[in-house]
Design a protein around this nucleic acid. Structure first.
Length: 399
RNA sequence: GGCGACGUAGCCAAGUGGUAAGGCACGGGUCUGCAAAACCCUGACCGUGGGUUCGAUUCCCACCGUCGCCUCCA
């Protein structure tokens, strides 16, 4: 398997260690419904997971839940419910949506609120090591003593500060020693949930949870760590800083980032409200069709969702189903060739569009076969198995 | 500023180390009283400049351009 690694900026072989692979994907903040952008990211890691398992490796997959955060608290306040109640409900809906499109459940799905104690421990280590400092009950990571900050995203400090100012962040916060310092711990307001710590009754900053939970569940270095490419900076940049400063280096062996999904040329995002929800798609077509829609796009290339794609994907699924249930056959040699080609495409930086072309070819040959061998021929079994590697096995996903 | 993807005839677009599919549009023709429809025919120095090679559109480097993302965000 060859994969693009964000840190090295090139496609490199991924070498499993001892037949095992640990995958950590940054999960959701559960305060709104899952949209196609979420689905694309988790679909990509699901295919990676299935490919590894198909190759006989033991995979341990982890996807966290950021269940305490300003957005959740805000929405919970608006709706007059406890933030835990909101998070539980949204996680349930999210898991349901992901199951509808045939995603394997993660082996571990840690929640931030269940690991605050470990986060406090990690932050304490950073403070003791001189990498973090406390001000008024808040704790900041001191980017001034970590010169490598910016290594992953390849941004220099001046640019990061500029970007940060443009986006309305506050590099000029007088409590910060350096403009790029980020929050590890923040004091909670009286009506906000809080956990005890040496600095204040408060809650963790955004980045610390992933470092604590990924290494907690997988040890270190983490084999594969990733998420949407909008997380490269500052989230993953900050994770690396706090991990390495905390004594965990190297932190991650391989960084994998998935491109953004647009709608009408504009990035699909909660703040803009231009969303296509997974829930609405699975009402129209089988989950396997949604997977084929996603698989038709390479994970490193951003794309713009078109409504017509749904029908195209559904038609493709129907064609595959017909090929699997018809009477066609293909030769043993041809089947082997197709199988090899399919895995070649997948193992070349997860080229799912290329892999689909192979499935199209198999389906076409099966459809062309005039013989009536009945279902269950070698070609039909192969098509079913390969669809399974893409997470689009028709039978398994009709909920 | 960084990173990614892309740059093939008017438009969309496939593809390969050995002088480039297809679709649409345009134009010409067959047919028709005229027109439409249908069918037939017609078009490319493969972004620019280097390099590797017997030979590159295809590989490598640089540059230019377009699009996307970059502390709410997957």
């Amino acid at each position: 398997m060859q994969l693009f690694d964000t840190a090295r900026q090139e496609v490199v072989p991924f070498e499993p260690r001892g037949g095992q692979v640990g995958i950590y994907v940054c999960g959701i903040t559960p305060y709104d419904s899952a949209h196609l952008g979420h689905a694309f990211v988790y679909h990509v890691f699901d295919v990676l997971n299935r490919r590894f398992r198909d190759a006989g490796l033991t995979v341990r997959s982890v996807r966290n839940v950021t269940d305490v955060d300003d957005d959740i608290l805000r929405v919970a306040r608006e709706r007059g419910v406890d933030f835990r109640e909101l998070a539980d409900e949204q996680v349930r809906l999210f898991d349901h949506d992901m199951a509808e499109i045939g995603l394997l459940a993660p082996d571990v799905e840690p929640r931030a609120t269940e690991h605050v104690e470990e986060m406090v421990g990690w932050i304490t280590r950073l403070v003791d090591g001189g990498y973090a400092y406390a001000v008024d009950g808040w704790v900041f990571f001191d980017s001034g003593v970590y010169p490598d900050y910016g290594r992953l995203s390849r941004l220099d400090h001046a640019t990061m500060i500029e970007l940060s100012r443009e986006r309305g962040a506050d590099p000029d916060d007088p409590r910060k020693r350096h403009p790029l310092d980020f929050v590890l711990w923040q004091a909670s307001a009286p009506d906000e949930p809080s956990w005890p710590s040496p600095w204040s009754d408060g809650r963790p900053g955004w980045h610390i949870e992933c470092t604590v939970m990924s290494t907690g569940a997988l040890g270190h270095p983490v084999d594969i760590h990733g998420g949407g490419n909008d997380l490269i900076y500052p989230h993953h940049e900050s994770e690396i800083a706090q991990a390495e400063a905390g004594g965990v280096a190297p932190y991650v062996r391989h960084w994998t980032h998935v491109a953004m999904v647009n709608l009408d040329g504009v990035k699909m995002s909660k703040s803009l409200g231009n969303l296509v929800f997974v829930r609405d798609l699975v009402k129209r077509v089988p989950g396997a069709a949604v997977r084929l829609l996603l698989a038709a796009h390479h994970y490193r290339v951003s794309w713009s969702y078109e409504d017509a794609e749904v029908e195209v994907a559904a038609m493709r699924l129907r064609r595959y189903l017909a090929a699997m249930q018809g009477g066609g056959t293909i030769g043993h040699e041809a089947a082997l060739r197709h199988k090899q080609r399919f895995f070649e495409r997948l193992d070349d930086d997860l080229d799912t569009p290329g892999a689909l072309e192979v499935l199209d070819a198999i389906a076409q040959e099966l459809a062309g076969g005039a013989e009536d061998a009945g279902p269950g021929t070698e070609g039909q079994q192969l098509l079913g198995r390969l669809l399974g590697v893409l997470g689009a096995e028709p039978g398994a996903v009709t909920a």
